[in-house]
Amino acid sequence: MTQFFQQLSDGVVLGALYALIALGYTMVYGIVQLINFAHGEIFMVGAFGGYTIYHYLLPDNMPALVALPIVLVASMITSGVLAAIVERLAYRPLRNAPRLAPLITAIGVSIALQEMIRLFYPNADRGEPFPQLFPNGQVHFGGVSESYVNCFLVVLSVVLMLALRTFVLHSATGRAMRATAQDPDTARLMGINIDRIIVTTFVLGGLLAGAAGTLQGMVASPIDFQIGFIAGLKAFTAAVLGGIGNITGAVLGGFVLGIVEALATQYVPNGSALKDAFAFVVLILVLVFRPTGLLGESVRARA
């Protein structure tokens, strides 16, 4: 039974990471109906942004706990700025194009970012060890133990998710985001500059992905140019599982996916080999019985 709770706890750690990235997919989809396939790469570049600051700019003898917030913020800013640039250069010119055009562009941006990092960042192809900015050690709850850095990952993720929730539900910009998601034309007539709202949405998703970049780096060093692919795929699955476009759904989807993978690893025969297959089985089952995902609403007709 202890082991069950241990796996549950490991699943929550993994799920928190998935959820942080999934939020970017779901917010962007909610507002422009675009699956931003480059989001995994925005996460990956964020991890390299944090690494760059640590490796090239911070003094070697800086205490890890001082460097941590700097690296974290650097990752977030890198991803946030990159998300804004991608939106401006790649997606905005296609705002009124048929849906397929931005979708294909997204795949192109994803490959372009991977290749740029691979070609131009030293050692990005074999992997760079990410700095370990958190003390080693374990927290024990009953028989369950998690490393400090895993606990930090979960706590920080939850704090960021709550901050996002507050922002979206209770700030003027958050209200404008929701209004734009529901009806962009009417939102415009409320004086909302929806271009600015859309870029803000990309930036918010980028900030969270950047934070996830540093967290994944610390938990699962090294980072290489391909880490965005699997993380992006899992997070996208989580977003669809929760109901794409729905913020709470993305968080729920992330945790469900993480926990399913962890429990499958432990309890399904050959589970560690089949856990990914298992995650997709869950996705398929949910979509069969609830095509809109766990918390998704039926697709709104646009006036």
Partner: peptide, 12 residues
């Protein structure tokens, strides 16, 4: 409240 958006000067 969404309607008050253009008259609010507080940024993101």
């Amino acid at each position: 409240l969404v309607g008050t958006h253009p008259r609010s000067r507080a940024g993101v």
